[in-house]
Design a protein around this nucleic acid. Structure first.
Length: 488
RNA sequence: GGCCCUAUCGUCUAGUGGACUAGGACGCCGCCCUCUCACGGCGGUAACCGGGGUUCGAAUCCCCGUAGGGCUACCA
């Protein structure tokens, strides 16, 4: 039997990293077994579902490369299926109409808790007489449908990751399967869909483990065959609490906007709760797919660690195909107004070269843009620390002046020729090359760190280098006391 | 409160009774490389939640605590 799995988010927010990992594990499992990965949207909660969330989730999945083979199916478009199933259970007396209102239920729940009792539904509508029923209906009450749960016996969840987990039926409520607005509840719709869609493996977050016996009861009531269950551990925020917005970036879209690469997120997420055979942490997707197995998924909840993700992102940024990285960096450069949008084709090679020079020393696409600014704009200020260190020396104006003159004579302005010029000059002056290099970097970039100086010079080109050198000399003369040997 | 899951360095994890002096990765620290910053290389720091068992032997099996998490909704 071929594998069929599904990812079934509710469209009540953007895809967060926990959901992304659940989707990833389903996707990996499908790909590993040449199965089918289905996307289903569990939008039975009319109040909380939104079109924007739906679009955002699809966008995130696509961006991550978690392509689905079927769907997206919307539960809200499959209501007839749930209605028929509920009808069948009603006819077979496996479910019943309940006329209690939410207010009444809340009140009884509150009372039970006050007495220290388990806040379970008291099943009062389970054995209503026809008279009682028509009286309640006459009151205009809109009923829900509840499953008639056996009060004895146990329901065992057989879970690939956790083994056999037994639940005492007596602890399970006669839970609602159809709401009074005739929408099915999650525990009902999910069962029918999993059955109808021929889902063979239900891979989902651990928060659903406790719901599973209820679903199994529905499977059994409907006479459906059970799928295999696998409950993957939750992903927790750094303070061990459940993930939420107050923990900073938790949605896939936020990571995308912060300049993370999909392959880094995929690699990182794959290692959160699962581990490959070797000791290598940078694992190509093909390897992850070929090695992925539910049995190797760990049981304990994981706390996500942005530091490791960032490290991985830096790796993929450095190693990735340059054209692709450049394309991905482009929006970040444009957002800062550094390059035109759209970028004229003739400017592409320069942007590409800048990205190449800069990407070795940053970890995100946003940082690529930050580190590249002076390749696209004038240098208007010099880093304070660098000024003190390199511009404040009395001989610096003379040094920059000499360097400028030598560079001016250059025909070919390349990494090699500029470096030779600097090395030779340093040798002639009998000073370490650094004394020339550091002030020059500050002069042409405004910064004390960055790519190798000669790489910068070649990229900037002779004209801009000379101009920036002159500007720096003027700036020093104006701002640094006693900078010019002859002025006092 | 009831039910369920989980428990190895700060974090992600390897580990399925002897190969454990507990391995790897991120982070952090140091050194090397070097025009700076990174990269890279080398080295270091750091963990089996506690208590009882079982066993010749326990990180590994069992029990009890404790801690964290989940479910207990006309949310999913």
């Amino acid at each position: 039997m071929s594998v069929r799995v599904r990812f079934a988010p509710s469209p009540t927010g953007s895809l967060h990293i926990g959901g992304a990992r659940t989707a990833l594990f389903n996707w990996l499992f499908a790909r590993r077994h040449q199965g089918t990965f289905i996307l289903r949207i569990d939008d039975t909660d009319l109040d909380r579902s939104s079109e924007e969330s739906y679009r955002s989730i699809l966008r995130s999945l696509e961006w991550l490369g978690l392509n689905w083979d079927e769907g997206p199916y919307l539960e809200s478009e499959r209501l007839e299926l749930y209605r028929r199933a509920a009808e069948k259970l009603l006819v077979e007396d496996k479910a019943y109409l309940c006329y209690c209102t939410p207010e009444e239920l809340a009140e009884r729940r509150r009372e039970a808790q006050a007495k220290g009792l388990a806040p379970m539904y008291d099943r009062r509508c389970r054995y209503l007489t026809p008279d009682e029923r028509s009286r309640l209906e006459a009151e205009g009450r809109r009923p829900t449908i509840r499953l008639a749960v056996p009060d004895t016996g146990t329901t065992v969840v057989s879970d690939v990751i956790r083994g056999e987990v037994a639940f005492d039926n007596a602890t399970i409520d006669d839970f609602i399967i159809v709401k009074s607005n005739s929408m099915p509840t999650y525990n009902f719709a999910t069962v029918i869909d999993d059955h109808e869609m021929g889902i063979t493996h239900v891979i989902r977050a651990e928060e659903h483990l406790s719901n599973t016996p209820k679903q199994i009861l529905v499977f059994q009531a409907l006479g459906y065959e059970l799928p295999v269950f696998a409950h993957v551990p939750m992903i927790l925020a750094p303070d061990r609490s459940k993930l939420s917005k107050r923990h900073g970036a938790t949605s896939v879209e936020e990571y995308r906007e912060a300049g993370y690469l999909p392959e880094a997120i995929i690699n990182y997420l794959a290692l959160l709760g699962w581990s490959p055979e070797g000791e290598e942490e940078i694992v190509p997707l093909e390897t992850i797919i070929s090695q992925f197995s539910l049995e190797k998924v760990s049981k304990n909840a994981a706390i996500y660690d942005t530091k490791k993700l960032t490290w991985m992102n830096g790796h993929y940024l450095r190693e990735g195909d340059l054209d692709r990285i450049t394309r991905m960096a482009l929006p970040f450069l444009q957002a800062r107004g550094l390059v035109a949008d759209p970028l004229p084709d003739k400017n592409y090679p320069y942007v590409r070269a800048v990205v190449e020079a800069v990407r070795d020393r940053v970890k995100t696409l946003a940082e690529v843009a930050d580190a590249a600014s002076y390749f696209f704009t004038e240098v208007t200020e010099y880093e304070e620390k660098g000024v003190r260190k390199f511009f404040a020396r009395p001989e610096v104006v003379d040094l920059l002046q000499q360097a400028k003159e030598r560079l001016q004579e250059l025909e070919a302005f390349t990494m090699e020729t500029t470096e030779k010029t600097y090395r030779d000059l340093a040798a002639e002056l009998d000073i370490p090359a650094g004394q020339l290099i550091h002030p020059t970097r500050l002069a042409v970039s405004g910064r004390t760190m960055g790519p190798g100086l000669f790489e910068i010079l070649e990229l900037l080109g002779k004209e801009r280098v000379i101009t920036r050198l002159e500007q720096a000399i003027a700036w020093i003369r104006e701002n640094i006391k006693g900078a010019d040997g002859e002025s006092n």
